[in-house]
Nucleic acid binder design. Structure first.
Lengths: 233, 233
DNA sequence: ATGATTTTCTGACCAACGTTTAATATCTTT
DNA sequence: AAAGATATTAAACGTTGGTCAGAAAATCAT
């Protein structure tokens, strides 16, 4: 069995676990289940993955790769300005989170790990096996890649004039990303039943896109003249 | 043993578990540990709390109560305008997240549950024992309370003229809250080591406060005349 | 081909830990 | 003080993540 066949088997196990995690969740999925679904013995799963969490990290890697595709798909289409790209990115980001809940939860869980990882005092809180995992290291890279792609969009926007030139691209993009993270977690996917109004990503997306525009172009003042009833910004 | 003494014992267990969860994390803390730290037998913890997750929900309740205090502390001081309140809220919110990591993680975990809870299709994914837990129900209320207090700040701001009157208070506040959630998760507490610059909550807080101002007052255009090197907005 | 060696694979087993339970002690009530 | 309710314990149970000795299969050497 060459390296290729081994990778193929790893993939088989990975896909089985993705199916199960999606269906029943991480905790309800037993290693025995993963083994059965992969048609191998339980012990063998530990030959291909160090432990359950390592397997989960592999799933997370797959998840973040797909999220990165969302980023890539947008920037690879030429002929649009940076602002439009970021607007579409936000739409697709929410769509991704909604349609791939388990994947997105894994990504968010990873973001929590990154926090610990970046703090010398807290780094020790991470399971050493996870830290050593190749998946974790690769995840850090993919995370960074996404940051780079997004930053490129801002750079592009500044070049083509759709974004204010005085903005610092990297910080600006991470600010936008942070907003996406927060909105998704607090409001999505079903939103929040307020006292006066039902707030959710769908009804509220136009407001967000406008906020994005205002932020990046600096056009708040201009739009203030047409107050829309119940509008957000 | 009356109801009072029972509550006191519950509190004892709760505090012990808070200590342990903070020190070692949820998974590394065993029920045996909690029992020992509370100087009772393991079995007895199950007399006071249905199971480990129920205990964690109680911890989460305590956490959210303290977060609510952050909200309350701000609004109870009179004589400031709404915008200033929201600015201070954001500062204190980040401070809270940083100084009470375990608590804040519990709150974020709860927010994930709320997502499932609000979606009829996904509600069944929540452990029935958690759903039935009194703590969970109370948490929904506290969550809502925080939303109300924050909304009040926006209302106040509109009244005193520090916030644009065309904004819809509730949606506006949840937008701000969403930002706080996202920033904390993506950037805090140590921030993010970018290629060109180190981004973290501390260095970047002024930019956020300014964004808040611009959003709520609609003053983007006005400030555009003084481009600060490397400034965010 | 055949024996030696490495790689892949299994299933039984282990230990840890959340949870239950049966029995006992303590308090409350009448 | 008897009866009932409440609090408490220790032991046992059941599940499950993880290990291990060894079988089976593939690869290699002669």
């Amino acid at each position: 069995m060459g390296a290729q066949e081994r990778q193929q088997k790893e993939k088989l196990i990975l896909e089985a676990s993705i199916r199960l995690f999606t269906e029943k969740g991480y905790h309800a999925t037993k290693m025995e289940d993963v083994a059965k679904a992969s048609k191998i013995s339980k012990g063998l799963t530990y030959f291909y993955y160090k432990n359950k969490e390592d397997l989960y990290m592999a799933v997370t890697k797959k998840a973040f790769d797909e999220l990165k595709d969302v980023f890539r798909d947008i920037i690879k289409i030429k002929g649009r300005n940076g602002l439009d790209m970021l607007t579409e990115l936000s739409n697709n980001y929410f769509k991704f989170a909604k349609n791939n809940r388990m994947f997105y939860d894994a990504i968010l869980n990873f973001m929590g790990l990154v926090q610990l990882y970046n703090d010398e005092n807290l780094k020790s809180n991470i399971d050493p096996l996870v830290l050593a995992s190749e998946h974790f290291q690769k995840l850090l890279e993919v995370h960074h890649d996404c940051g780079k792609i997004g930053t490129q969009m801002v750079v592009q926007g500044i070049k083509d004039g759709s974004i204010r030139p005085e903005l610092q691209p990297e910080a600006t993009f991470y600010t936008i990303w942070a907003m996406l993270v927060g909105y998704e977690r607090l409001l999505g996917p079903v939103g929040f039943e307020g006292k006066d109004a039902k707030i959710n990503l769908e009804t509220w997306k136009p407001s967000f896109n406008r906020l994005l525009q205002d932020m990046l172009k600096g056009t708040f003042q201009a739009q203030k003249v047409q107050p829309v009833q119940g509008s957000l910004f």
